[in-house]
């Protein structure tokens, strides 16, 4: 494997997919490096699932080039599938089998499976091994799905909405499990609706809207998040004093209520807060509710998936 390891785990160029002449995926391209966790975000109907199913070899593409572990998924054979694990978005447990039996069944499909007890331990289902899979809770079922995908010891793992419908504690447990997988060097492709999930887990995020990727970057830089203005909010005890703010701040300030609330949009939050503090001391004007906020991933995302108005420069 080492000799002909391709440069990228996944490489996609000008990918298109039509359904009955309707273009669902309209020229998508990206690379995913080995060991990376890559998240594909986007509203329902954006084409995420089509892209994922093409990468997984479940769906033929209309056009473009795709290489997954150096192989065209449409030509993927058994040795290719040996290296890939897939957690489907919706799947029922295998009926009539216990957790251990289900994992053993899938282990038997691989030439070099991970040991079943080790796989169960990795997803935290050891104590459920003897239980019928159909009697597991939602979160446990999802962990079993992950176990079935991991038992082949894959180099590449697809996780399609791994925590949809989870309660917060189950979600945190799932995140921890995925972070542990990162430690083993597994490349992971993730789709999710949860921004906090993408931010916490992903090395890189691509946002898909209407069949194209509208932004790609790290959670910190996506959509120019790192360059976007920060927001400083505070409240002035004497609302009329707001008019006396130094000019530097005055220019950026917006009143946001009649109780003395002021909001500044600024590329230099630290300097502005310093100036604000100096002004407050000097004029003996009390400030409350001071809050400095970088744009959240969610703000950037919601902005990205907005239908574009007149194209900005």
């Amino acid at each position: 494997m080492a000799a002909n390891t391709p440069p990228a785990a996944i490489s996609v160029r000008r990918l298109t997919k039509d359904y009955d002449g309707v273009r669902a995926v309209a020229g998508v391209g990206f690379d995913i490096a080995f060991g990376e966790i890559f998240a594909l975000l986007g509203p329902n109907g954006a084409g995420k699932t089509s892209v994922l199913e093409i990468l997984e070899g479940f769906r033929p593409r209309t056009g473009g080039d795709v290489a997954v572990l150096g192989v065209d998924p449409q030509e993927g054979d058994r040795s290719w599938r040996e290296r890939i694990g897939i957690v489907l978005q919706e799947s029922q447990p295998d009926p009539g089998l216990t957790v251990r039996e289900a994992v053993s069944l899938y282990a038997g499909y691989y030439d070099h499976p991970r040991p079943v007890p080790e796989t169960l331990a990795r997803v935290g289902l050891e104590s459920r091994a003897q239980q019928l899979a159909t009697t597991l809770s939602g979160g446990e079922r999802r962990r079993l799905d992950v176990a079935l995908a991991l038992v082949g010891d894959p180099d590449l793992l697809f996780l399609d909405e791994p925590t949809t419908g989870f309660d917060p504690s189950a979600r945190r447990a799932a995140w921890q499990m995925i972070e542990e997988l990162r430690g083993t060097g597994t490349t992971i492709v993730l789709t999710t609706h949860y921004l906090d999930e993408a931010e916490r887990l992903a090395d890189r995020i691509a946002v898909m809207v209407a069949g194209t990727i509208v932004a790609e970057g790290t959670p910190a830089t996506l959509g120019g998040r790192d360059r976007a203005d920060a927001v400083v909010r505070f409240r002035i005890a004497e609302p009329d004093a707001a008019a006396a703010l130094p000019p530097r701040l005055q220019a950026r300030a917006d009143r946001f209520d009649n109780g003395g609330g002021v909001m500044l949009r600024t590329p230099t939050p630290l300097e502005d807060v310093e100036a604000l503090a100096a002004w407050s001391r000097e004029h003996q004007i009390a400030l409350t509710d001071l809050d400095v906020r970088r744009p959240q991933l969610e703000d950037v995302y919601l902005d990205l998936i907005q239908p574009k108005k007149a194209a900005p420069a």
């Binding site: 479940f58 058994r78 040795s79 599938r81 489907l88 799947s91």
Partner: peptide
């Protein structure tokens, strides 16, 4: 039909089993 609709057949085909 039940295993196809429940995604069980799809998951099995995702594994390297012919």
């Amino acid at each position: 039909v039940v295993q196809r609709e429940g995604g069980v057949l799809k998951r099995r085909r995702a594994a390297p089993v012919p």
